[in-house]
Write a protein that binds this DNA or RNA. Structure first.
Length: 644
RNA sequence: GCCGGAGUAGCUCAGCUGGUAGAGCAAGCCCCUUGUAAGGGCUAGGCCGUCGGUUCGAGUCCGACCUCCGGCUCCA
């Protein structure tokens, strides 16, 4: 038989030859360094037989940066971890141990709880295995044999995995340790040059909190020590972008134990907030949204009607005032439903787009809180679009376009997920077919790449969720676009059609920033605190060199301030060097040093980072105007400005 | 909520096997009068997260709680 190599040459091999055989046929060195076989984008164990005409690429230890090559390395390292733990902790039960982004983990049920201090000991044991050397042997077995083997070993979790396994079952054995595993794996442990156990955590068996909580050990591995070192360095660098660190440091916000998980916004943080708010209002006006404001507190009855209480009562702030039960809203929908229902509605009013950025309160459970990214006060850039079934498609498409435009202003983009019907759905399959198709069409129309999350939709309708990463690569949901016919009917809302009869309504729930809190958190990490000129809370700082320069410096400040720029003068009794440094640390985009030389009319301007230039005040104003316009302040060519 | 870790000055952190709390930066005052990333001096600043326990004595040991961090679960 023949296989195709990456350089499109053909390799003749005997029938039944494996990837390893192919590597040997090319060269002994290649065979020795081979770690994985890749074929048309999928990976395959080197020990498996090839097919006639198959396209193959052999990855070696030299592909140390290749994500598939790292994946197999880490997967094999996870097995070494399991072997080490089994040896050190008799009676431990093993669950699963996959590679993940940047590393791997393995889940165990320990007879006695272990602590972080135990990790070095386990790491040493892995090192010992590496020194001794391990090689992996693959073997396909029958389900019955696999079950028998793991029963004898007392590995109940593995038995359960065999019972629910699909396709052929394979064992990988290294030393005296055999694991149930689909593979692929390394030939042997020689390529594993750097291993580090990075953490300990609880994790539920099969991700279900009703199940036993297992102990998860996280680790990572690389083809070289220097790769591990630079990875750890990158992690440190990412931590420096953490908004929880930068926020207080840049004087944007802080948290208080007196109101856990609710930020206290400082003046500089509010500059960011109102920049976002200005964009929101400008774009809403341009796109036909109507601003409304509805109460924050409603009687409990409202949330029984809306359906929030049955599901979320425990996560809502409730009050008992004058003997009547109340709750603080955790969503804007009830208020908007009441507003819509305040009088009969005609088809001529639809689509009707209500928008409201008021804060919502949710008593999020403690373990889930995370800086600005998971808070108890959530200010959504919320909107509810009331429309007919015929209008759904256009409305969704417009919202998706809006999202793409909005994120683009910040140089950010989101990944999209289409969440489809869950098990507890209400409504007919035909409805769901149509609605899911409408969302999907809107994504395609806007050329937004997306993945489908089957069964993840809300019970009342499918949704598009938009995600962004934080500095450490964790995914956070930003925007959401949800289609719903239940909420209007719960509130008895209808519209009168052309035929003079009542019809049921659809509503699109949508938030695009998601919440101001979370969006600003991501924004801080996205820029690492180095905000572009138009967003920077302080755009220009002027440093008078001597006392006699304070007055003219203040004049420059007033001139720039009158132009709408955020300018301040630093006339502290410190050296210029010190004040420059402070401006750098505070990440202020422009610094003007004002001394004797500036009295002639030209100004010395320093960009954040150190670049210096000299120009007239007028030239400076023009430059700043251009900088401010380079983004959200002005629509940036995205259409007309709203009427004032 | 669950597993693991941590809370000492405004910030970053020292503080050994229990003996009564320390540095740098920031702050205030003074000197210097400043030219592109830290000029100098002095001063003040602490219910050592909270409550309880052990002890002659607790920042240090034990327990509970609160908050934060890494995960899991959840996320209308």
């Amino acid at each position: 038989m023949k296989v195709l190599l990456p350089d499109s040459s053909e390799l003749e091999l005997p029938d039944g030859a494996t990837g390893l055989d192919a590597a040997r046929a090319i060269g002994p060195k290649l065979a020795e360094q081979a770690v994985l076989l890749r074929s048309n984008g999928t990976v395959q164990d080197l020990r498996l037989p090839l097919e006639d005409g198959q396209q193959i690429q052999i990855l070696t230890t030299r592909n140390a940066d290749d994500s598939d090559a790292l994946w197999v390395l880490r997967h094999s390292t996870a097995h070494l971890l399991a072997e080490a733990v089994r040896r050190l902790y008799p009676g431990v039960k093993i669950a699963i141990g996959p590679p993940i982004e940047n590393g791997f983990y393995y889940d165990f049920e320990f007879p006695e709880p272990i602590r972080e201090e135990d990790l070095p000991r386990i790491e040493e044991e892995i090192q010992r295995e590496l020194t001794e050397g391990r090689s992996w042997v693959r073997r396909e077995v029958q389900a019955e044999e696999a079950k028998r083997y793991f029963s004898e070993q007392g590995e109940g979790y593995k038995v359960e995995l065999v019972e629910t396994a699909e396709g052929p079952i394979s064992f990988y054995t290294q030393g005296d340790f055999t694991d149930l595993c689909r593979g692929p794996h390394l030939q042997d442990s020689k390529p594993i040059k750097a291993v580090k156990l990075t953490g300990l955590a609880g994790a539920y068996w099969r991700g279900d909190e009703r199940n036993t909580q297992l102990t998860r050990i996280y680790g990572t591995a690389f083809y070289s020590q220097s790769d591990l070192d630079s990875y750890l360095e990158r992690v440190e660098e990412a931590k420096r972008r953490d908004h929880r660190r930068l926020g207080p440091q840049l004087d944007l916000f802080h948290f208080s134990e007196r109101s856990p998980a609710s930020p206290l916004w400082h003046p500089k943080g509010m500059v960011l907030w109102y920049e976002l708010e200005a964009i929101r209002r400008r774009e809403n006006a341009r796109r036909g949204y109507l601003e409304v404001k509805t109460p924050i507190i409603y009687d409990a009855e409202t949330f029984w009607t809306s359906g929030h209480f049955p599901k979320y009562e425990d996560l809502m702030f409730k009050l008992d005032v004058r003997g009547r039960p109340w709750a603080m809203k955790s969503m804007n929908c009830p208020g908007h439903m009441l507003l819509f229902g305040s009088r009969p509605r005609s088809y001529k009013e639809l689509p009707l787009r209500y928008a409201e950025p008021t804060p919502l309160h949710r008593d999020e459970i403690p373990g889930t809180l995370h800086g600005l990214l998971r808070v108890r006060i959530v200010t959504q850039d919320d909107s509810h679009i009331f429309c007919t079934e015929d209008q759904i498609q256009d409305e969704i498409a417009a919202v998706v376009d809006y999202a793409r435009y909005l994120y683009g202003l910040f140089g950010m983009s989101a990944s999209a997920e289409l969440a489809t019907r869950p098990d507890n759905k209400i409504g007919t399959d035909e409805q769901w077919d149509r609605n899911e198709a409408a969302l999907e069409a809107a994504l395609k129309l806007n050329s937004i790449p997306y993945t489908v999350a089957p069964g993840e939709g809300a019970f009342y309708g499918p949704k598009i969720d938009l995600f962004m990463d934080d500095a450490l690569g964790r995914k956070w949901q930003m925007g959401t676009i949800q289609l719903d016919s239940q909420m209007p009917s719960r509130f008895g809302l209808t519209y009168v059609g052309q035929d003079n009869t009542e019809h049921s309504l659809y509503v699109v729930h949508r938030a695009l920033y998601g919440s101001f809190e979370r969006f600003i958190g991501i924004l801080i990490e996205h820029f690492g605190g180095d905000f572009p000129f138009w967003l920077a809370p302080v755009q220009v700082r002027i440093l008078p060199v001597g006392e006699e320069h304070r007055a003219p410096a203040a004049e420059v400040r007033d001139r720039l301030g009158a132009e709408g720029f955020r300018v301040e003068v630093d006339e502290r009794d410190e050296t210029v060097g010190k004040r420059i440094r402070d401006a750098e640390v505070e990440k202020i985009p422009r610094v003007i040093v004002y001394g004797d030389r500036e009295s002639t009319g030209s100004l010395a301007v320093r960009e954040r980072g150190g670049k210096q230039d000299t120009k007239s005040l007028q030239a400076l104003v023009e430059e700043f105007r251009a900088l401010a316009a380079s983004s959200g302040r002005v629509a940036g060519g995205a259409g007309p400005q709203p009427a004032q």
